[in-house]
């Protein structure tokens, strides 16, 4: 019992350090007149402290909200400044992205071109490849683990797959850039296909691998939430396991699975390091998985890393891209969360 207690002390000291310091003064001031009984005084003190503690707790809870507000405000604020320089329509519908501002103001295209469509297309291409890998593999793995694998096997396989989820993205990026991409390029050379050394395929494949445990653990939760009685009902009629899974369990779990896939997609869209290290910088508008494409996240990094003055269209563009990214992922996340919550309530 000592360990939890020690941990609690640490927590209380940290969480309430400020609180104790401030309330101590109030308590002392309240204590001095000393006409009331000790018991009354303790109670009064306790109430004061507790009311104050609640305020501290509320203040802490508001940090999460402030973060969201801060994200939205900073993105919107900088984006508005960007759109004062570059028209919104040029940004949203432009087909050319080349933010290299000219050295001299009299050069052509001094402001650069900021059409985000190629970046968006690149992001979607890589996300699509990633999901084509992660969705079937993750889902099948989840099905196997929840329906077929024995308890012992599951206890081994699950933590192993979770290792994949714990590997930092920069490691995946390194793997994609130094192992997978050259591998594909060599295959392409042998078969006479031109595969860029920064192909969307390599980035997408590795991102897919990264997302597999994400899809599988979310789907496994969803699948195991399907009541056992439905399985028994189906087996009781002589259905095989795969028939039960395909015709009863998956349809029943569908909303939850869709939610899981949406969350995974949102993650793939927002993934940065794999794209930065394995996808290219050239903003090609292409659907060819063998070509190099660039993504929204790569461009944000490229625009903001290195020395640059902060008010140029170039740096502000990163915030506009960030706003788009935030908005897309927000929509996906909220839909997914609502769908999954509804689903959970349905079977709880």
């Amino acid at each position: 019992m000592t360990s939890p207690f020690v941990l609690t002390v640490v927590a209380v000291v940290l969480a309430g350090g400020l609180l104790l310091q401030k309330s101590a003064r109030r308590i002392l001031v309240g204590w001095l007149p000393g006409s009331r009984t000790f018991r009354q005084e303790t109670n009064r003190r306790r109430k004061l402290t507790e009311r104050f503690a609640i305020y501290v707790l509320i203040a802490c809870s508001s940090v999460a909200i402030l973060t969201t507000v801060g994200i939205i405000l900073s993105l919107v604020f900088e984006s508005v400044r960007f759109f004062a320089l570059i028209p919104v329509t040029d940004f949203l519908f432009g087909l050319k992205w080349s933010p290299q501002t000219a050295l001299r103001t009299d050069q052509v295209a001094a402001t650069g071109l900021f059409g985000m469509i190629p970046l968006f297309a690149g992001t979607l291409l890589i996300t699509l490849i990633a999901m084509l890998i992660a969705a079937p593999i993750g889902l099948l793995a989840a099905i196997y683990m929840s329906e077929y694998a024995s308890r012992a096997a599951r206890d081994i396989i699950k933590p192993c797959l979770e290792i994949l989820a714990g590997i930092p993205t920069v490691v995946y990026g390194f793997f994609a850039a130094l192992t997978v991409a050259p591998f594909f390029r060599n295959i392409g050379d042998v078969n006479g296909i031109v595969i860029s050394s920064e192909s969307a395929l390599a980035a997408g494949l590795v991102m897919g691998i990264m997302i597999i445990p994400f899809v599988s653990s979310l789907s496994e939760d969803v699948i195991s939430a399907v009541p056992q009685s439905l399985r028994e009902g189906s087996y009781g009629m002589g259905a095989t396991q795969s028939e039960t899974i395909k015709q009863v369990i998956l349809p029943a779990a569908l909303p939850g699975i869709i939610g899981a896939l949406l969350l995974a997609t949102s993650r793939a869209i927002g993934e940065t390091m794999i794209d930065v290290m394995a996808a290219g910088l050239s903003a090609n508008l292409t659907a060819n998985p063998f070509a190099a494409v660039t993504t929204v996240t790569v461009q944000i990094v490229t625009l903001l890393v290195g020395d640059q003055e902060f008010d140029s269209a170039k740096t502000l563009a990163a915030f506009a891209l960030g706003l788009v990214l935030f908005f897309i992922t927000l929509v996906l996340n909220v839909i997914a969360l609502v769908v999954v919550n509804k689903y959970r309530e349905h079977y709880d």
Binding site: L230, E232, G233, G236, M237, G238
Partner: peptide, 21 residues
Amino acid sequence: DVVQLRAQVGMVFQKPNPFPK
């Protein structure tokens, strides 16, 4: 073959468990 056996011996459960269909 349990599949065939269960087709021959059907079952109704304690709690009604219609499929969500």
